[in-house]
Amino acid sequence: MKRIGQIMYLHHDAYAEYQKRHNNLFPEMRQALKEAGAHNYSIFLNRETGQLFAYLEVDNVEKYDAIAKTDAAKKWWAYMEPLMDTNPDKSPVTVDLDEVFHLD
């Protein structure tokens, strides 16, 4: 099991809409995440800066990374693109964080 932490960037006027869309996550996206071995997935918002902190655990990083090639992820990214900073393929701009401490 691998713990993953990432930072993403939400537009300041999109806070409520971002949460609304995640409260209604596409069923196919939820299924793709489960099939990719993702669990304990949480996203936290810093309302002052618009930074999002995502934390999740995956069984296999390579299997999880393959989610980017799925139709579900591409559809979700296109849906979320107006709300956040994105790459040319509409995936969210992310900064991967290095784990420096963990307490079991």
Score class of each variant (00 low, 15 high):
Ala36Glu: 10
Pro92Phe: 08
Asp65Val: 10
Asp98Gly: 03
Ala38His: 10
Leu97Asn: 11
Tyr79His: 15
Asn87Phe: 03
Leu52His: 08
Met84Arg: 11
Lys75Trp: 00
Met80Thr: 05
Gly37Ser: 05
Asp71His: 11
Phe53Asn: 02
Asp13Ser: 09
Gly37Leu: 00
Ala54Glu: 13
Asp59Glu: 11
Gln19Met: 01
Lys75Gln: 09
Ala54Pro: 02
Asp96Ile: 14
Pro88Met: 10
Leu56Thr: 13
Gly37Glu: 05
Lys20Glu: 07
Arg30Ala: 15
Ala73Thr: 01
Leu25Pro: 08
Lys90Trp: 04
Leu97Lys: 12
Ala32Tyr: 07
Leu25Val: 13
Met8Gly: 03
Met80Gln: 09
Asp65Gln: 14
Ala32Glu: 09
His12Lys: 15
Glu62Gly: 05
Pro82Tyr: 11
Ala73Asp: 00
Arg47His: 10
Lys63Pro: 03
Val100Asn: 15
Ala36Phe: 11
Leu33Glu: 04
Tyr79Met: 13
Lys69Tyr: 13
Glu57His: 03
Arg47Ser: 11
Tyr79Ala: 11
Ala16Ile: 00
Lys20Leu: 06
Thr70Pro: 00
Thr70Val: 04
Trp76Leu: 01
Asn46Thr: 05
Glu62Ser: 14
His11Met: 06
Phe53Gln: 07
Met80Asn: 07
Glu99Lys: 14
Leu10Met: 14
Trp76Ala: 04
Gly50Glu: 09
Asp85Gln: 15
Leu52Phe: 12
Leu83Thr: 09
Arg47Ile: 05
Gly50Asn: 02
Met29Ile: 13
Tyr15His: 08
His11Pro: 02
Arg21Thr: 03
Lys63Phe: 03
Ala78His: 02
Gln31Ser: 11
Asp13Trp: 07
Glu48Ser: 05
Arg30Phe: 14
Gln31Asp: 15
Met8Gln: 11
His12Tyr: 09
Gly50Ser: 04
Ala16Phe: 03
Gln6Asp: 14
Ile67Asn: 00
Thr70Leu: 04
Asn24Lys: 04
Ile43Asp: 00
Asp59Lys: 01
Arg21Gln: 09
Gln31Glu: 15
Tyr79Lys: 15
Glu28Leu: 07
Ala78Asn: 01
Ala54Ile: 04
Glu48Val: 00
Lys75Tyr: 07
Met29Asn: 13
His11Asn: 14
Tyr18Cys: 00
Lys75Asn: 06
Glu81Ile: 05
Leu56Pro: 05
Glu17Cys: 01
Val93Leu: 06
Gln31Ala: 15
Asp89Lys: 12
Arg21Asn: 02
Thr70Gly: 05
Glu57Thr: 09
Ala36Ile: 11
Met84Tyr: 10
Ala72Trp: 03
Val58Tyr: 02
Glu35Pro: 02
Thr49Phe: 04
Gly37Cys: 04
Thr94Arg: 15
Ile67Ala: 01
Phe26Ala: 13
Leu45Glu: 04
Lys69Ala: 14
Tyr41Val: 00
Asn23His: 01
Pro88Val: 07
Ala66Trp: 04
Asp98Phe: 12
Glu81Cys: 06
Lys75Thr: 11
Ala68Gly: 10
Ile7Leu: 14
